[in-house]
Design a binder for these strands. Structure first.
Length: 1059
RNA sequence: GGGUCUGUAGCUCAGCUGGUUAGAGCGCUCGCCUGAUAAGCGGGAGGUCCCUGGUCCGAGUCCAGGCAGGCCCA
């Protein structure tokens, strides 16, 4: 009898049961089996790093990363979802440094690189269990058993092969470039790393005199030798010892001024801001006139003819400073480039830990930033300091350890990505970006301004750069495989067994193919972004094995990660695939927004406002979170993750779904409905059935269209609208059909329709909210059905079921009902009180609607009126009030339109209406005349007695609120029925219990009960109703109804089973 | 400083190609319905559609310039 189990109100317990059932039936595996022969839909997993805990922000992309593969799987595609873990890189090293209490590379060396690397390898898995638990609990189906791991020898071997390809084809080169460098970590950072660490800080800014010593070789003639200086400006005083030149803008105007007993030269445009004292301009000069001048640097560490000259440079501006730029090629990108172009000597008095060397004795051993003060004091003492101030600007800090970064000229290996810029742009043009502007804007601009990829890192835990250099002849080779390593190695046994990590692989020496000398590996590891960006190839250990799997799974149809990955993984995937395979790596990409905390701030570890996902998962469940994230806004909008925000969809959608199912379960169990046996005959389908089946079909088509274009939110909107129709109109209006006794055609039609709607709905919802969909499906499914909703085919919608005219009619009907409720509200008449009638007129935006009798009957029942009619207009009840129609007035009358509108409003409605019925009316508009046409005016309301009129969106409803005795008595009957039903419930009776009713009370109420015994009895399932209480009733209560009294007693008479 | 997105009710967000009175959900409040009852429905209050200018008969919508916020980049 109780065949359809109710869902239960605890979503957490329910979800846990579902998880257990998926596990025991191996549902994910089976969903792959089912589609194995199908067309492929390729998804790439952007690998997380498991040395940090998963936090809420990680859930956002994951929800989409699960939705689309699930959807495509149900559509019959084979969607392998190989998991992956990102395992290398500086973040891992830093965690370990913290754990073992060291803070620099020398300390790591002292600790032992081998031990250190082993610790890194362990650290990488620190939170693996948390990640797996989170993914499982959220219902994220991905193959973690066969996940790729970037630190394995096989993975690294593929990376080596890739790098060797690049090396052979000339993409790898060694450069000496100025890079942002972290002196604590001892390595250069790539641009995406630097970007994470900008902070506003106050730094000293100084203006410094550089005394002119010679005008030889320039067109400037020195007049006051010994007391004429170039005034230069910098925010990094510590770079002054490395000064080798000054740069000016050749096309700007400079001036020499006499001030405070000295002569200073600076850009004319800076006169106002850069000088502290009174001055007199001695002469104006073109910037180019200064080129070639020689000056005395503050710290003459070099005795080189090429140094200490004034040079012209394009990057000099006169926006700030003095227009004369201090140039230290070791510490600035522009400076370096100028140094290269002009053949300047290179001065680098700072070691790799950021401390001055002996070369600069004044501050030897001091960290450069700390030396600022000493240098400033020194300059002041020597009369070279002109001005000192604090200057607020953005300065980059190491994103992991918060040390200020220094711009350093350092050796680094690069990938010449700029060589394939055109291909990258071309490929990008074929990628569908969601949102589009990321592809054209953020990512497109990045590609337009592409720089070569700084690949090498002077660190320990990473993929070793596979370059060996010969000590003898300098030849460099890139090893492409383990076999090649063995073949070239001096010690082949070692090479065969060695782990492809530092320090082990460093011990492998090769024989130089050119000179037979010994080759040693360069000391670098590579940027970990290369690891993850190569997963398209390396996850299969291609080309060493799995060629077919690689081919089948490249490129990806879909990837999705957080927006921050634009220049990270999104870029490195594309760069590597373009260079190696000459193809794009993915066709569709969703970039998701940030996770915000309850008050709308970005969640970040440093702010300490990171929300633990478990807090909300345990409270509301995975489905709620999923539906919230999918339905609240577009994926790229940032999402607030406060409790209150997440709670909303629980009520809005999931509870309604649960209730709709529970309603079905209640009655279908009572009636023993069986979808396999009770099939609806087409001719038995009521208008409601045909309508909801049409809505189902059109919703299905809509959802499929949305999902095919990666618009999850639009799909959720459609699903919510459908569920509202199903619950608040179909079920609500069909209730009496289910309550009826027997199992005749109409009732079967109702059950079969609701069953069908529910089954299809949960199939539609399955990729979005897999748990509740499964729970309902399990309760509904028949023996022939798949054992999980996730093994079903996704519905696509039966086009022949779609009846748009009927859908419009019903939409109109619902609108009319809503107006009816509003009218009753205004008239203060309860719905329980029957009324004589209502009349509706109007149309929907789409056009005129004519409601069939069956639909009008539904409206009548819902509004509890005896009759609803649809009329062309309500003129007999309504006095027209004219309103202007701007759509016609505007185009025809132009500027006169507002005045015409005023005129129309001021006219007596009935008269104007009559006149317009004859044709155009002449209007006097403040001196001008214009014709007002019938279509220029619409007419609204005004009303007669005993009626209430309500109106919205072009639909009007008139409610007849006049009561007579008959209606009043009917109202009383409804009231009695309602009160007795409440008593039944209070008494704790089952809905199917039959009862006997006894009553004693006022004459009016007794008479009413007696006169309406049969209709009342059938409503309340009474087998007998009689006057007179006996005292043995199970439940008894005094009722006050309209100031009358009646005492009602109830007795159960057994349960005869289905009605 | 550059790119980009956003700015609409107390909160979260819709608003298509310009068109009469700008919407939904939540919250608040009043009421209703109830044989789905820890659901459901209706009403009400609540809005300078960020600002200024422009185009237009008409601008939340288009254009320009600001302001504020977010993200990315320097």
């Amino acid at each position: 009898m109780n065949r359809y189990e109710k869902l239960g109100k605890d979503p957490i317990a329910r979800e846990n049961e579902i998880l257990a059932s998926w596990q025991s039936t191996d549902a994910f595996r089976k969903s792959l089996e089912r589609t194995r022969g199908g067309p492929r839909y390729v998804f790439f997993e952007g690998p997380p790093t498991a040395n940090g805990k998963p936090h809420f922000g990680h859930l956002i992309p994951r929800v989409y990363k699960d939705l689309f593969p699930r959807y495509k799987t149900m559509r019959g595609f084979y969607v392998e979802r190989k998991g992956g873990w990102d395992t290398h890189g500086l973040p891992v090293e830093l965690e370990v440094e913290k754990a073992i209490g060291v803070n620099s590379k020398p300390e790591i060396e002292a600790y032992g690189v081998e031990r250190f690397v082993q610790r890194c390898k362990e650290s990488v898995w620190r939170y693996k269990a948390d990640w797996e638990r989170m993914m499982e609990r959220m219902g994220f189906w991905i193959d973690l058993e066969d996940a790729y791991v970037t630190y394995t020898d096989a993975y690294i071997e593929t990376l080596w092969w890739e790098l060797a390809q690049m090396f052979e084809r000339g993409f790898l080169y060694q450069g000496h470039k100025v890079l942002p460098y972290c002196p604590r970590c001892g390595t250069g950072l790539s641009s995406h790393e630097v970007a994470q660490g900008y902070r506003t800080v106050e730094d000293p800014s100084v203006s410094v005199r550089m005394r002119l010593v010679s005008d030889a070789g320039s067109s400037y003639k020195l007049e006051r030798s010994g007391r004429t200086s170039l005034l230069t400006w910098t925010t990094t005083p510590w770079t002054l010892p490395a000064n080798v030149a000054l740069a000016i803008a050749p096309d700007e105007v400079y001036v020499e001024v006499e001030t405070g007993g000295e002569r200073l030269i600076l850009a004319k445009a800076r006169l106002g801001d850069a000088l502290d004292h009174e001055y007199a301009v001695v002469r104006e000069l073109a910037g180019r006139d200064l080129v070639g001048l020689r000056y005395e640097p503050p710290y003459p560490l070099l005795s080189d003819e090429r140094a200490y000259r004034v040079l012209g440079a394009g990057f000099v501006n006169t926006e700030e400073g003095t227009g004369i730029v201090h140039t230290a090629p070791a510490f600035g990108e522009d400076d370096y480039a100028l140094g290269q172009a002009e053949g300047l000597p290179f001065l680098h008095p700072v070691d790799l830990r950021g401390r001055f060397t002996e070369e600069f004795a004044l501050c030897a051993g001091a960290f450069v930033k700390d030396a600022d003060r000493t240098i400033i004091e020194d300059l002041k003492g020597r009369g070279l300091l002109y001005r000192f101030a604090l200057y607020e600007h953005e300065y980059p800090f190491c994103w992991r350890c918060d040390t200020p970064l220094l711009y350093y000229a350092a050796d680094s290996w690069y990938i010449e990505t700029t060589a394939v810029k055109e291909e990258l742009l071309e490929h990008n043009a074929h990628i569908k970006w969601y949102p589009e502007h990321v592809g054209t804007g953020r990512f497109g601009d990045f590609l337009e301004n592409l720089k070569d990829w700084a690949l090498s890192r002077d660190r320990y835990w990473g993929t070793p750069l596979n370059l060996w250099v010969c000590a003898g002849c300098g030849k460099t080779i890139a090893v492409a495989s383990r076999d090649e390593l063995v073949e070239r190695a001096e010690d082949k046994a070692l090479a065969r067994a060695v782990e492809l990590h530092r320090p082990y692989v460093d011990a492998v020496r090769l024989v130089c193919p050119a000179c037979r000398g010994t080759m040693t590996r360069v000391p670098y590891v590579i940027d970990a972004w290369f690891d993850s960006g190569s997963m398209h190839t390396a996850q299969w250990h291609y080309p060493f094995e799995n060629e077919d799997r690689f081919r089948e799974n490249f490129p990806a149809d879909f990837i999705c990660e957080a927006m921050e990955q634009t220049r990270g993984w999104f870029y490195t995937l594309l760069a590597t695939s373009t260079i190696l395979h000459g193809e794009l790596a993915y066709r569709n990409v969703i970039a998701t927004g940030l996770g915000l905390d309850e008050s709308g701030l970005k969640m970040s570890k440093s702010k300490g406002n990171v929300i633990d996902p478990w807090q909300l998962i345990d409270l509301y469940g995975a489905d709620t979170l999923r539906w919230y994230l999918l339905s609240s806004s577009a994926p790229w909008n940032s999402k607030r993750l406060g409790e209150a925000d997440v709670k909303e969809p629980l009520y809005r959608f999931l509870d309604m779904l649960r209730n709709t199912y529970d309603f079905f379960a209640l009655y279908a169990s009572i009636d023993g409905f069986d979808a396999a046996v009770h099939r609806a005959r087409e001719e038995d389908l009521a208008v409601l059935d045909r309508w909801i089946l049409s809505r189902l079909a059109s919703t299905t088509q809509g959802v499929v269209t949305c999902l095919d274009s990666y618009d999850a939110m639009a799909a959720t909107v459609l699903l919510e609208a459908f569920l509202d129709d199903l619950s608040n109109w179909y079920v609500r209006s069909s209730r009496r059909r289910f309550w009826r006794g027997g199992m005749e055609g109409d009732k079967v039609a109702a059950y079969a329709t609701l069953y069908r709607a529910l089954v299809d709905l949960v199939r539609l919802c399955a990729p979005f909210v897999p748990f509740i969909s499964e729970a309902i499906f399990q309760r509904l499914r028949g023996v022939q059905d798949p054992e999980s909703v996730h093994l079903c085919e996704y519905p696509v919608g039966e086009a022949e079921r779609v009846d748009l005219a009927l859908e419009s009619q019903m939409a109109f009907a619902r609108k009319v009902v809503s107006l009816g409720h509003q009218a009753r509200n205004e008239a203060q008449i309860k719905v329980r009180q029957p009324l004589r009638g209502a009349a509706a007129c109007g149309s929907l935006a789409a056009g005129p609607i004519s409601l069939p009798e069956a639909v009008l009957a539904l409206v009548a029942v819902e509004l509890n009126v005896e009759r609803v009619e649809q009329v062309g207009n309500l003129d007999t009840y309504v006095q027209p009030v004219p309103a202007p129609n701007f759509r016609t007035l505007g185009p025809r009358l132009g500027p006169l339109a507002p005045r015409a509108a005023g005129w129309i409003k001021s006219q007596p409605g009935a008269l104007l209406k009559e006149q317009l019925a004859q044709g155009p009316v002449e209007a006097e508009l403040g001196g001008e005349r214009a014709a007002i046409l019938p279509e220029d005016v619409s007419f609204a309301t005004g009303l007669a007695d005993g009626f209430v009129l309500v109106e919205d969106a072009g639909i009007r409803l008139l409610l007849d609120t006049r009561l007579d005795e008959e209606l009043t008595e009917k109202g009383l009957v409804r009231e009695l029925v309602h009160r007795i039903q409440l008593l039944r419930k209070e008494a704790g009776f089952e809905v199917t219990d039959r009862i006997e009713v006894r009553y004693e009370g006022d004459r009016v109420l007794e008479a009413c009960l007696a006169a309406n015994r049969d209709p009342i009895a059938s409503e309340i399932l009474a087998v007998a109703m009689e006057s007179g209480l006996r005292g043995d009733e199970e439940h008894r209560q005094d009722l006050v109804i309209d100031e009358g009294h009646v005492t009602i007693g109830l007795v159960r008479v057994g349960r005869p089973g289905p009605r």
